[in-house]
């Protein structure tokens, strides 16, 4: 039996998947308004209710995580904002690594590799932007001036335009890419093999083994 290491604990995984479900509902109900050909499907306003219910979940999940563990949440959150030369090393090695499978040039990565950290940063920023712009669009509809409301729609759309390609990349790297063989298992069952950890997250593996 290959040695298994816990990467994501149960609470992390549960919150991830609830958040994923909420995001997908938001994505689809938002896309219907965004893609002109699908607009008529939003007639009558049912998708507006679904969008709001999912929005409450989307906003609440990170808040819930924070309440469940304020200091671990804060330290996890701050990781999104620490960038150094190690990340530059990832960036330089990334084209050969992700296209040609050249693992030798890729420097040792932590629990989140630089790419995962970038996605983490984007999702943190997106949560703030969607919550603020969405909240104003929802509750400010009759009180905020038209120009400001249109600005909220614009910022909401810009954030969405960034998320669209990144969510495809996230799903692709998690499930499809030939090198990321255990990424799915990490977020579904919570574990990776020691061998995978050594290869993909060597710095993290050393920390875990050191305990």
């Amino acid at each position: 039996m290959p040695e298994e290491i816990v990467k994501y604990q149960r609470s992390t995984r549960v919150l991830h998947w609830i958040h994923t479900g909420a995001f997908l509902l938001l994505f689809v109900t938002g896309l219907i308004i965004f893609i002109p050909a699908f607009g008529p499907a939003a007639a009558g306003g049912v998708t507006r209710i679904i969008h709001r219910v999912a929005a409450v979940l989307f906003v609440a999940i990170p808040v819930l995580r924070f309440i469940m563990g304020p200091s671990s949440s804060l330290s996890g959150l701050l990781k999104a904002f620490v960038w150094d030369s190690g990340d530059v090393g990832w960036l330089k090695a990334a084209p050969r690594y992700y296209f040609l499978g050249d693992e030798k040039a890729m420097p040792a990565q932590g629990e989140m590799n630089s790419g995962q950290k970038l996605w983490w940063l984007i999702t943190v920023v997106a949560w703030v932007v969607f919550t603020i712009t969405g909240g104003i669009m929802w509750f400010g509809k009759e009180t905020i001036n038209p120009g400001a409301l249109t600005t909220m729609v614009l910022l909401h759309d810009i954030m969405m335009a960034i998320i669209i390609p990144m969510i495809f990349v996230h799903i692709y790297l998690g499930i499809v890419h030939p090198l990321m063989t255990e990424a799915w298992n990490a977020i579904w069952r919570g574990t990776v093999t020691a061998e995978y950890a050594k290869k993909h997250h060597a710095k993290w593996y050393e920390e875990v083994k050191g305990k």
């Binding site: 810009i158 969405m160 692709y172 499809v176 890419h177």
Partner: peptide, 24 residues
């Protein structure tokens, strides 16, 4: 934003498709 978002989405799908062919 509609053509921009659509363009980014299509570019991502095409780019990932290319990555899959090459990486595999």
């Amino acid at each position: 934003m509609w053509p921009i978002g659509a363009g980014l989405g299509v570019a991502a799908i095409l780019g990932l498709g290319l990555n899959y062919i090459v990486a595999r």
